[in-house]
Amino acid sequence: MTEPLTATEKTSDNPILWVAKPMVTAARQFARSLLHPSTVVYPFERLEDPKFRTEVGIESGKPIGVGPIWDNYRGVHALNIDTCISCNLCAFSCPDLCIDMVTVPGGDPKHPKKCPQIDYGKCSYCGFCSDACPEGCLSMTTRYELSVHSRREMVFPPEKLFGIYQQKLPMNPIRVERPANEDRIVLEPPLCIGCNACSRDCPTNCITMMEIPKPEAKPGEKLPKRIWKEPVINDSDCVRCGTCISVCPKECLFWGSRK
């Protein structure tokens, strides 16, 4: 035998309270919203407009995210083609593999100039590429409006990124700085196999593979199988791009200091 379900309710409720009070609350909200609706009419008004700076600025104590865009916002990239040294570091550091190095006019036929082309369909705006760029020529701006009509348009070639650079948007100033005393490429000679990879990929051709004397094999000892050459780096030409470190198959190149 189950009890029938009955709705229980407070019968002492005063009609003034449950009609008049909500209506007064709504009217107060209406009056407030008539002057300052919370909605920002987005394409025509933006939170970064000066008129919102005072209202939702940092001073107001509101949580981060409702204020104007911050300077370290990671938006679309700006690329300065002129100073790019085609070092590949951005493409290497990209976790989403969205950077392709494509040829741009301006290089010599033997060493075509290659600059990053970014596929925003994949980019996660992590900023690793701009951290890695040794020249500071790839950095992230505060622009966040990137919608396009097709996937193909999401791929921004270097020229387009250069166009964004030319608009002089506020840029994200944060880059990992290398310690001042560790700005040389150092080689751990016993590991090197003389493969020529660093010399081949160096954008400034400052690595020369120098012959080293082939040691005499002691009896019973087997000499390592390698080319008897070692990279010698011309520090005055080196642009500290780090490409050689990245391409070295034996990981024998490091950042360090040489006296």
């Binding site: 919203s33 909605t39 009419v41």
Partner: peptide, 13 residues
Amino acid sequence: KLLGRFMDRRGAM
């Protein structure tokens, strides 16, 4: 429009 303001919105714009 009215309902928008009551709900702190702007309604059709």
